[in-house]
Structures are given as C-alpha cells and as structure tokens.
Amino acid sequence: MGVFPLSPADTTEAPRDERRETELGAILGALGGNVADSLLKPNDDIWVRVTTESWRSSIETIRSLGYAYFCFLSAIDWMPSPFGKGENDPTQPAPERDNSIVQGYTGGATRFQLLVRLVMPGSTSGVNIKCDVPDDSMTVESLVPVFAGANWHERETWEMFGINFAGHPDLRHMYLPQDFEGFPLRKDFPLLARIVKPWPGIVDVEPLPGDENEEESEQS
C-alpha cells in the first residue's frame, strides 16, 4: 500500500505560488483602500474581502483586470446553527452550544457575508471576493449592472438569506412561494424534519475496503 499524506497542514515545503502572488498583487493594487483583507493559499485560491461601500465598484475593478467570468454569487451565514445537526432528542433540553460567530478566511465583522467568485476566462485564475453585509440594513449594492448573470444569483441569495440588493431590477422569489416567510438558509431557520425526529445518521459509518480486521479496534 502506498503512503499518501493525510495531515492537513503539510508545512515542510512552504510552497510558493508565484502566479497567484502576482495576480493577488494586481488585484490589491487596483482596489487600493477598498480591500479589507486578503488571503492567498498557495496552489489553491485567492480570497479578497472588500468593504461593503465599495462592493460594486470593487467588482467592476476586478472585472476590468480580466476576471470577466461570473461564476457564482452567494452568501454565508457565520452564526453556528442553534439546532446543531439535528442529532439531539427534541424532548431533552438542548445541549450547550458555542454560538459565537466566527468568520472564515479573510475575517469580517458581520454575521452574513457575500461571496462572489470571478474567474479569468480560459484559465483557472479565479478570485473569491467577500464582503460584509451590514447587520442592521442587510443591504448591499446589486451586481446586476456589472454582471447580468448576477440577477438570478442575487434573487436566490435574497430569498435564502434575506439580503437585500439595492438596484436589483426584479427581486422576486425564485424557488419558494411568493408569500413564503423566513429565509431558509439562515442558520436559525429550523429544518423541521430534523427537529421533530432526531437522526442517528451523524454517527453512521460504513466499512471501508481493506479494514475488515481493524473493525473492532476502531469502533471503540
């Protein structure tokens, strides 16, 4: 059996990714003070967080650098779900959970963050652009004037997270009935099926090839 690395942080080599470093440098140079934070993972991807006020203009700037392909737009709700994974018995009192909001790469200060991925056509030089969504107004500028394809993505994000897009031509429900209340992808929107009936699947494991003899020892 060959040996393949399993440890997540293989720091022995400290790889450099000169292509992405140049690309990130160009983006940071063009955006100037609009960048809140940035991150480069060598041989992986680039993350840039821009300020909320400069959201549309930053995207426009990055687009003018050649990132003309609109991949997707979505949002992330950084609040951990108060319901966990629905593995707990609803008749018992809910266990204590750490509900502190911790943002992911490139940090941030708000519960919701927008996420857009733009790619340079014909290559895989992409950039993930994030921006904070103000907790009080829940409004950011719409990207539809920049990328027409953002229309449906923003509709979906509005429907699922309740983030308003100022300047969107047609903010209607996409999947859900027009009179639906609530924003399903928010973490505090309960997945009722899991609330009424806990699901033991979280501890479900299947045997993998080649470890029949170790089954008992690892089960414990």
């Binding site: 779900s81 994974k85 629905g86 699922m160 429900h173 996409m174 999947y175 859900l176 399903p184 992808l185 973490k187 929107f189 997945l191 899991r194 699901w199 699947g201 979280i202």
Partner: peptide, 14 residues
C-alpha cells in the same frame, strides 16, 4: 423552483 429540494440546507445536517 418546482423541484427545489434545498440541498444546500440539507448538507448542513449531514
């Protein structure tokens, strides 16, 4: 939306 199954939500509980 006539076939929306909410996979993004469902992945969070799996």
């Amino acid at each position: 939306g006539y076939m929306h199954r909410g996979y993004e939500k469902l992945t969070e509980v799996r």
